[in-house]
Amino acid sequence: MLSFLRAIGAGFFAFLGATGRLFLFALASLARVLRPPYYLRATLRQVIEIGYFSLPVVGLTALFTGMVLALQSYVGFARFNAESSVATVVVLSMTRELGPVIGGLMVAGRVGAAIAAEIGTMRVTDQIDALSTLSTDPLRYLVLPRLLAGLLTLPFLVLVADVLGVFGGFLVGTYKLGFNPAAYLEQTHQYLEAKDVVLGLVKASVFGFIVTLTGCYQGYHSRGGAQGVGQATTYAVVSASVLILLSDYFLTQAFFTR
């Protein structure tokens, strides 16, 4: 019994320790914003890498999510004659919830893994030490541009996801479920508020930060060659996904339940 409690306690303290280290890493990296030099070229490269190159995967996922959402909600709502709410459900679900979460998770898989692998490889091949010997702060050069790019580009990415998700719902609603296009669009507009979209984009920004932070943190602290880099990549994706879903609950509670 005692050893069981000890194991739980050790696990809990390990979790607290890891959270503290992640927090300090984020703080140390963000503090670099206050003082030059700034690496604009590196930041721009990350904006393109994270934002532009994630467009196909996020867009495609959002499109099909919107389509499935329309189908599923139609089937469910038909049971109590509320089919007309399909458009409202699709647009609110996409903007408030699914756009940011699906976008965040897809970017975690694509970008978080790539960041952890790239920085992890740099760590185990001495490239990060080489940066220091070349009078370049690795947190400023490697981590800060990625954090800023994640923070700034995810909202735009999710905005595209929102539009494509709603469009997917519209396609299914009008071509498969027989809704009148004008009536569907009218329903889409009727109950949508600016707050739904904006707070969804704020969520996206938080998720972008989480994805890039965990990718950078895991890569930066990887050790032990190829196996260590592989482990860092796995941890980056898993921890980003868990943190996205965890923070999504608290953000939803803070934004939408008052």
Partner: peptide
């Protein structure tokens, strides 16, 4: 950082970016 301006290092594996 100022101290690093005085130093150069050749790493075992090259450590080229």
């Amino acid at each position: 950082e100022r101290l690093m301006h005085k130093m150069g290092m050749l790493f075992q594996g090259g450590a080229l970016f």
